[in-house]
């Protein structure tokens, strides 16, 4: 079940959903608009031959910060990470989804490559996987409404929510456009016969 505006507002007021900073006009019928922060993580493609997620090139990415009054120009085919201005905190019985704003999508701007899913008890900024599938460069303005978060209830609280010591929750408490930490995973061992 997806939470309605009234329930979202109540849970924010009660403090069980953390979402800040937030203004009233961000709450939509079944979601909350989120805004783009000024920091982006760009890929230094010229330094890398190939990306092996278990052994990524050193300094594959770097953070750039956009000054007041300036935009980040995302070129066709380009892929960068951004993050939301809003810091979110979920209780152990809610999960959330981030999706791009329709008005941005209509220009060919994708807001997440995959993994629009946010686990129960996650806390931090939401990282956006921004790409441009249009044929024209697109100006991303810090502070613009870029996406929306919707909330879904679990049938009961998770036993081991995100951040539980048994899980390798790599992005708990993340701030800004945190890059992939896939290399923290163990390399795969294929079972016998595979």
């Amino acid at each position: 079940m997806i939470l309605s505006d009234g329930t979202i507002r109540r849970l924010i007021n009660e403090g069980s959903i953390g979402l800040e900073p937030i203004t009233k006009d961000q709450i939509q019928p079944g979601s909350v608009d989120v805004r783009l922060d000024r920091k982006f993580r760009v890929f230094r493609n010229h330094t890398a031959v190939c990306v092996d997620p278990y052994d990524p090139p050193t300094d594959l990415t770097e953070v750039v910060e956009i000054a007041d009054g300036e935009a980040f120009v995302l070129h066709p085919g380009e892929f960068v990470l951004g993050s939301t201005i809003e810091h979110i905190r979920l209780p152990d019985d809610l999960v959330a989804r981030v999706d791009g704003k329709s008005s941005i999508g209509r220009y060919g701007i994708l807001v997440h490559a995959t993994a629009g899913f946010i686990d129960a008890s996650f806390t931090g900024n939401v990282v956006l996987e921004l790409s441009n599938v249009s044929s024209l460069p697109f100006k991303l303005w810090p502070g613009m409404k870029i996406g929306q978060i919707s909330f879904m209830r679990l049938d009961q609280p998770a036993e081991r929510p995100y951040g539980h010591p048994d899980l390798g929750s790599k992005y708990q408490g993340q701030t800004g456009p945190v890059g992939s930490q896939y290399d923290a995973n163990q390399a795969p061992v294929l079972p016998e016969g595979r």
């Binding site: 490559a113 996987e129 992939s180």
Partner: peptide, 15 residues
Amino acid sequence: VEGKSSLGRLGLLTH
């Protein structure tokens, strides 16, 4: 089915 966040951050789409 959804991709892992750590792979999405590298620009990989899983579906």
